[in-house]
């Protein structure tokens, strides 16, 4: 099992629900192929430094996970096919120093989620229920 980090950018034209659905879809790919998702970092809508496929903005998400190397090719294949994903980058953390940093990043991401989750928690379940019903 190796430690990986994948950053991907979703098109700004999608609605909030659609972006959430896309992120869930990608997480599912990680889960299905035996990946262990440690943390997610929502960087949110940001301005891109240069236009990508004529988009000036994008929705950034970072996934931190542990997985076998075979997952990466499958995940990247999915990201390439997906037309709503305009950019992605996978980074592998190998040696001990990088691993220490990886754990730090995971902790930081988890902490920031906990902070934001308190007010959001009431909204999040209702959204998921709505999607399952539909």
């Amino acid at each position: 099992m190796n430690c990986y980090e994948t950053l991907f950018v979703i098109k700004p034209t999608l609605t909030d629900e659609e972006t959430a659905a896309q992120i869930a879809k990608i997480k599912e790919v990680v889960a299905k192929n035996g990946g262990e998702l440690l943390a997610t970092d929502d960087m949110g809508m940001r301005k891109l430094a240069y236009p990508v496929q004529k988009n000036d903005r994008g929705y950034y998400t970072v996934l931190f996970y542990k997985a076998e190397g075979t997952l990466i090719s499958e995940l990247e294949r999915n990201l390439k096919i997906n037309e709503d994903v305009i950019k992605f980058l996978t980074v592998k953390y190998t040696n001990t120093k990088e691993m220490a940093q990886f754990n730090k990043l995971v902790d930081a991401a988890n902490k920031s989620v906990e902070k934001t989750e308190a007010p959001v928690a009431t909204e999040a379940p209702t959204e998921t229920e709505a999607t399952t019903e539909a």
Binding site: L7, V9, A49, Y50, V52, L89, V91
Partner: peptide, 11 residues
Amino acid sequence: KRARQTALIPY
């Protein structure tokens, strides 16, 4: 170089 690839900073 990674930041450039992900459009965080311009080329």
